[in-house]
Design a protein around this nucleic acid. Structure first.
Ligand SMILES: [Mn+2]
Ligand SMILES: [Mn+2]
Ligand SMILES: [Zn+2]
Ligand SMILES: [Zn+2]
Lengths: 143, 143
DNA sequence: GTGGCAGTCTAGACAGAGTCTAAATTGACG
DNA sequence: CGTCAATTTAGACTCTGTCTAGACTGCCAC
């Protein structure tokens, strides 16, 4: 057996280097800091929020590094990029397939409760293409 | 009977003023031009593409007017705002409820064929909120 | 007809997210 | 240690979209 156990938030800070390495991400001080922030719990953070938390933790990284690191994490599958509203991208540290509620009035973003939502009769992708991922965003307004 | 027939693309240019008026949109020269472009067929256009078509048609409108008009059309339900990739917003003149394929490699955007896709077991919106709309985007890559 | 006026349009300044570049730093390895 | 490829950095830059303040339009009252 050689099935790698994927680490799921919460991941303790001391385990972050292993979580990165297991995905082929070279371990650096900045990547550990950013990874520790994201993997502390399942959450949705923008680049700006990540950088703010770095500061709050007494760490720091340049804007370019924050963006490069989040992009790398997304490419390696550690986090998932969520395009919700055109103003900023969110990075989601919940690794499971799941869908989102977005409150357009106050900007809050929730995971669907883990009910057995299903998409049926999904058409096959157009000729010459293959499925990458399915995003479902349910937009709600404050009543 | 008083059920207003909603005009569906293709809408002839001469019918655009009525299409706007029926939604409570005050008719102006710029709104007719932009409406004529969008309603010519069911399509997905960015603000930049709309402005380029205006120029191509020998018409024009300031950037502020293009954005204001598209925002107004979306608010009134003439078009639907699609947030696909964080780089730009698309405006969709297909008024029916429908889902999208997006090719992340070449940026092309298609409507799902009108197959009976269904989302089942959709959880109810969080307390204090009500459903606005459901966006389903299937991202594909070129094989 | 003319004047008034609200609504609309406009140029261009501004804002904010994200990218790029070129130089400095890091740290693994011989 | 010294080398060197990978990484990080400051800050300029790009791009989408917003805002402001003034100009324009066209409808209506008189
Ligand atoms: Mn934007
Ligand atoms: Mn952007
Ligand atoms: Zn999520
Ligand atoms: Zn569409």
């Amino acid at each position: 057996m050689n099935i790698k156990k994927i680490m799921t938030p919460p991941v303790r800070r001391e385990d972050v280097p292993a979580a990165l390495a297991s995905l082929g991400i070279a371990v650096t001080a900045q990547r550990i800091e950013i990874g520790a922030i994201l993997l502390e719990s399942m959450q949705h953070l923008s680049a700006e929020q990540v950088q703010a938390r770095l500061e709050a933790d007494g760490a720091s990284a340049s804007k370019a590094t924050v963006y490069n690191t989040l992009g790398l994490f997304a490419k390696k599958g550690l986090v998932r990029e969520l395009v919700i509203d055109g103003a900023r991208v969110f990075y989601d540290s919940n690794p499971s397939d799941h869908f989102h509620f977005y409150n357009v009035d106050d900007g809050t973003l929730f995971d669907f409760p883990s009910s057995p939502v299903t998409l049926t009769n999904l058409p096959t992708p157009p000729e010459g293409t293959k499925l990458d991922k399915v995003d479902v965003i349910v937009r709600v307004t404050t009543k």
